[in-house]
Design a protein around this nucleic acid. Structure first.
Lengths: 201, 201
DNA sequence: CGCATTATATACCGATAAGTATGAAATCCG
DNA sequence: CGGATTTCATACTTATCGGTATATAATGCG
């Protein structure tokens, strides 16, 4: 990180980090295609030319917002894999998801879920990006569960990849429920139920 | 159903049922907001004025398409509740969902899931409608599971409402996975895993 | 100060969105 | 055949979309 390399010309009057954070909130509530530049610039407190000069265009802005989202909101996913048991991993993932979904004013799905389900028209590269990121985190989860299986934590008949897909589906389904107006209590109950069903070796 | 009440004036040159079915396909692949009138009329084989005369407007068309969707695609949900055991209900629901998701060219989420997650901007009434329909079918599922519990099918510690929410979440999560490019084989595996985890009394 | 440079604000661009006005074409009733 | 009626096809309206041209304001450097 080269701190303030050179500052020639008129200095910019906004903080790109703050602006990006505001953009993330808009994308998270509206989705990529549902977020208009008018709403984005309004929330970011800047004008369109400033946005384009600083972030490129709407698509590049979204990718940067997704970076921020992973860094700020999905960090629990990496640390969840450090749990001592497979069940602990599942519990951390479920509770972490619950936390980010119920953290704001009203529950909403993970931004990745929204982007995967909602982007259709021209936002192919958005969807591709999200799917690739998801695949990468899924891979890490599968590897962790393979270790768990090697350590005898999982029943013989259950594939690590299968249980990873299953857990991911529950987590994504939780996001859909959140989008559909589920209360935090209902989402918490969903976490408990899922944990109650977790297999024992 | 009054069959052909009166036919005065120029007869319409298309079949409303067929046109609606075509519209449903477009809504299903693009979502409500992602489906443009241009694409809809193209797929339906009619012009915009014909669409407006026959169906009202885009929103009314969507509600009618949703009716058709429930009638044609979600009928398995009602019959699933007739299964003799709670586990049988779950299996029918999961396999029925799998079937409609993998029936087309490539897997896609339930239209309800897409609408709940994706509709944000102005489509509030769409979302409200979908949520209400979902609540109604959820209610039926809860009642069925309450019966199962009364018959001793479910473990003591598990609430019928909780397990209904859980099952719905898995089904919706399956839709997200389908949207995210999961293969039919992966989705089938998800069904199997979920059934393997189903609680036994 | 004067100049190069960068960011700002306003106004604009073509494309597309949903929805409609208008007139011609096709039917039934008399 | 001649209205009355309904549908059809084309062209249009207004608003908004993402993106940009242009001109002005604010800085560092010399």
């Amino acid at each position: 990180m080269a701190a303030e390399p050179v500052t020639r010309g008129r200095p910019r009057e906004f903080d790109p980090e703050e602006a990006l954070s505001a953009a993330l909130q808009v994308f998270w509530t509206r989705g990529y295609e549902g977020a208009s530049l008018a709403e984005l610039t309004e929330a970011m407190g800047i004008t369109k030319p400033s946005l384009y000069a600083c972030f490129g265009n709407k698509e590049a802005l979204f990718h940067k917002a997704l970076d921020l989202y992973e860094r700020d909101k999905l960090c629990y996913m990496r640390s969840a894999l450090d749990a001592p048991t497979a069940r602990g991993v599942a519990e951390r993932l479920l509770r972490g998801t619950l936390q980010i979904q119920t953290g704001g004013s009203d529950p909403r799905a993970c931004l990745g879920v929204i982007s995967m389900v909602a982007c259709t028209t021209q936002a192919d590269s958005i969807k591709t990006d999200v799917i690739a990121r998801r695949a990468s985190s899924d891979k890490a989860l599968v590897e962790r569960l393979e270790r768990a299986k090697a350590e005898g934590e999982l029943p013989a008949g259950i594939e690590p990849a299968a249980i990873a897909t299953y857990l991911t589906a529950v987590i994504q389904g939780m996001g859909v429920q959140a989008s559909g107006g589920a209360t935090p209590a209902q989402l918490e109950q969903l976490v408990e139920t899922t944990l109650a069903m977790w297999p024992t070796a």
